[in-house]
Design a protein around this nucleic acid. Structure first.
Lengths: 190, 190
DNA sequence: ACGTTTGCCTAATAGTTTTAGGCAACTTAG
DNA sequence: CTAAGTTGCCTAAAACTATTAGGCAAACGT
């Protein structure tokens, strides 16, 4: 019998691949086993259960996303860094819709804390160093950016901006300009 | 045999209720049947299949959300309307996490077009009337707000802002002030 | 009261998730 | 180069889930 030669990592990687093709929700042990050409039960040596499989795909996606964002902002600052970071995020989502959905899979608190999630906040903070915001404003700004990137890309992926003009790319650029301007002129607290 | 007296509407309503309790992803025909005290097969007279059940819950949630947002902005304008709208959104999500997740369920284009989704855009546009933005800026602003509300609430729900100060409520208010200021001073196109 | 509608049931089929135990394909050490 | 150990995959089996078909009786309109 010829072995497929799988291990935990290759299984999760194949799961991520599959997610991009058929959607994260549709990634199940049985479906994944089918595409790998093995019996469903065989996956259980590499992954604890369906939830564990999804969790590992989520962790992989968070890591990849942080890596790409990190590379994108290296050597940049201000509006330049903001644009590069935002584009890294959006490009990843468009290129890997299933992985991006995975990145929003609900993790239990301990897993989330040990994930690349916190790295995302740190990267966002790094960008904000180019704008001098004091605390707590910097934290507000991190949350504004994180929320906006997440939500915009989700709505775009759901087709919310198709069939209407202007195109999504134009809105994206203009909104980044607007946010850049806001970060440079954050209003005084009321 | 005592009947439960269900019909399509009550089944969907119970499904929404269940979603808030155990999470939208976990709402399945069998789980719903269990809570309703009927056999799984019985639900199939009211709902075509599992996907149809979820779609109907999504449509209900979109409708409810639009109703609440609409009521919230009645008689308000400017920062006042913006805050009321945003709070309606966020309050709904905190009060009904399962329904809110349902509202982001991927609908096929025709269903989406016939849903309350477009009403959400119209409501957002109504708010923006208080700020005079010309096209295409108004569209950009709709997308900025829609994206931000969606994403912020999602991250908050996932626990992204717990265990760190300042509290989420403070960020929320400050960010709304900041967005209000941005809408009044949207930068000229580059 | 009568027929119609409809809400729910049982029965059956096909597929998914997960556990247990086994064997053969590789790997490593003597 | 063989013996021992590890590991990757398999079959078998139990417990669910999704879905279809057909039937009966409760409720409803006349």
């Amino acid at each position: 019998m010829v072995r497929a030669g799988l291990d935990a990592e290759s299984v999760v990687r194949a799961g991520a691949e599959l997610a991009d093709e058929i959607g994260f929700e549709q990634v199940t042990p049985s479906e994944l086993a089918r595409t790998l050409g093995v019996r469903t039960a065989s996956l259980y040596s590499h992954v604890r259960n369906a939830h564990d499989l999804r969790t590992r795909i989520a962790l992989l996606a968070l890591e990849e996303l942080a890596d790409e964002a990190s590379a994108a902002i290296a050597g940049r600052a201000g509006r330049d860094a903001l644009g590069a970071f935002a584009d890294a995020y959006r490009d990843y989502a468009l290129r890997h819709p299933g992985r991006f959905a995975a990145a929003r899979y609900r993790l239990d608190p301990e897993t989330a804390a040990a994930s690349a999630g916190p790295r995302h906040s740190r990267l966002t903070r790094a960008i904000l160093r180019g704008y001098d915001l004091d605390e707590p404003r910097e934290t507000h700004a991190v949350r504004l950016l994180g929320g906006f990137f997440t939500g915009y890309v989700e709505l775009e992926g759901a087709g919310g901006f198709s069939h209407s003009s202007p195109g999504s790319q134009e809105s994206w650029t203009e909104i980044l300009d607007a946010l850049d301007s806001l970060l440079r002129n954050w209003p005084a607290p009321s």
